[in-house]
Structures are given as C-alpha cells and as structure tokens.
C-alpha cells in the first residue's frame, strides 16, 4: 500500500471515478434531451420521456414480471443456500470441497453456456419461455451468492452455542430454528438482496428462455435501445441510477455489504 499518497495517485483516482461515472451522467442528460437520444450534447430539453415512461404499460409489465421472478427466485435461492451451507459446513460428507465448488458452479460457468443448457433442458419438457423456467434458471444462477454468505457465516459461528442448546435439551430442528437461523439472518438477508438484484439484472441466460409473454425488464430495455428504439428508456435508466445510488447507500449503512464484495 502507498503510505504517502502522491499527487499522481489522486489524479489517476479522479480520472478513474470520472471514467466510471460519466456514462451515468450522460444517461441522465439524455433522459431530458428533446431530440435523438443518441445525440450528445442535446440541443433542447424536455420532460417528455418521463411523461411517456409512466404511460408505458409494456415496460411496467416487464418491471412487475422481473420483480415477481426476482422475489420467487430469491426465496428459492435462500432455501438452497442455507441448506447447502448446512450440509457443506456442518454435515459429515466426503469431498466437501468438491460439493462446495459444485454449488459455486453457476458463478464460474459462462452464462451463455448456462443459457443454452437451460433452453435445451426446458425444451425437453416443452417448458421454455414459461415464467417457472425463468424462475428456476434464476434461482440456480443466484444461489451461489446466498450459499457463499451462509457458508462464511456458519464457519465463523460459535459451535459452543449449538452445544449449549443441545445440552439444554434442544433437538436439532429446535436448535436450528432458535440459534442458527437468528445468527445467520442478517448476512443471509444481505445475500438475498444481492441475489434479488442479480435476478432483476439477468439478461444473458434469460434471453434464451424468454418469449413474447415473458419479456423481463433487462430484455425489454435492450429491445428499446435496439429493435424498437424508444427514448422513454433513458428516463427509466435515470430513475434506476437514482434508486441504485439510494439503495447502495442504505445497504452499506445497514448491512455493511462491502464485506461480502470481495469475490
């Protein structure tokens, strides 16, 4: 680490921050641009895009769809994550490392491959394009986030508390409910929030599965910028940017999410 930071360090840092943030800035400016949204700088300003945004039913349907998929997939991922972590950390299983890697797999396998696999898989049941196929696919992709956090939490947890509970007459399930779950809850919630956001954001896999009546939000946004160009999307993006910043600040304040960001 640099103990005494040079001027150059700050120059590079400012440049990096600008480089990262400038697209957001341009999007916000584009959302109030009167003419072509791909033209920068804009020649006139208008709130037309914001007005259209709240009347665009198609878009809001996609938001609702993605929200429902996100919530359901997250609930599934939390169930998978906690049970997987219990097995990996507390279970007496052979080859625990292999099992843990298996549950981390969706983070490692390229998403395009995952998408094709799910398409082939669900086609055999004629289930591609259904909302449940997308939910299942998402829960597989996002479960590593919960599994990882739940594993870390269980590894640090004080085994003596479990022993104390058992000595006091608690069976496994009573102990699990009254001791382990409450101690895991804060980190599992932050893992679940992260999972939910990944699901809301998922494009690569979903695009293989989505059909006319299951166009999720990221796919809709992509359509608005390529196939069926619609400047409403710049207003939508600006709103997401704003919400994301608020969300990040709240999450960091409440859950200290930076602790889980190093993977």
């Amino acid at each position: 680490m640099l103990s005494k930071k040079s001027k150059l360090f700050y120059v590079v840092m400012c440049f990096a921050i600008f480089f990262i943030l400038s697209p957001f800035l341009i999007t916000v400016i584009a959302s109030v641009a009167g003419s072509n949204m791909f033209h920068f700088p804009p020649e006139q300003f208008t709130l037309m895009n914001y007005k259209n945004l709240f009347q665009d039913e198609q878009l809001w349907q996609s938001v609702w769809l993605s929200f429902c998929i996100g919530v359901t997939a997250t609930l599934l991922a939390v169930t998978i994550g906690i049970t997987a972590a219990m097995g990996i950390v507390k279970g007496q299983l052979p080859m625990k490392n292999v099992i843990e890697s298996f549950f981390m797999g969706p983070l490692i396998v390229p998403l395009v491959t995952v998408g094709i696999s799910f398409l082939v898989f669900f086609s055999t049941f004629q289930a591609e394009g259904t909302i449940w196929s997308i939910i299942l696919a998402h829960s597989v992709i996002i479960s590593p986030y919960v599994t990882r956090i739940a594993c870390a939490n269980l590894r640090q947890s004080n085994e003596m508390l479990e022993e104390a509970a058992m000595m006091l007459g608690a069976g496994f399930w009573y102990m699990f409910r009254t001791v382990l779950i409450p101690s895991m809850l804060p980190s599992v919630i932050s893992g679940a929030v992260l999972s939910f956001l990944v699901s809301m954001d998922e494009y690569t896999v979903t695009v293989f599965l989505a059909q006319v009546n299951t166009v999720t939000l990221p796919i809709r946004i992509y359509q608005y910028t390529t196939i069926d160009i619609n400047p409403t999307i710049t207003a939508f993006s600006a709103m997401i940017i704003l919400l994301s910043f608020i969300g990040l600040i709240v999450l960091e304040k409440v859950f200290k999410i930076h602790k889980y960001m190093d993977f």
């Binding site: 004080n158 003596m160 509970a165 058992m166 069976g171 101690s183």
Partner: peptide
C-alpha cells in the same frame, strides 16, 4: 445417547450465552 436426551446442565468456559 445424544446430549439433548441426557438432562445434564453445562457451564461453559466462554459462557456460550445466546447473544440474540
């Protein structure tokens, strides 16, 4: 016999109180 079926009381070195 598992510990929860023995009806014994235990006091631990690190107290092992349930923090929540």
């Amino acid at each position: 016999v598992p510990p929860n079926k023995r009806n014994l009381g235990m006091v631990f070195q690190q107290y092992a109180l349930f923090p929540h």
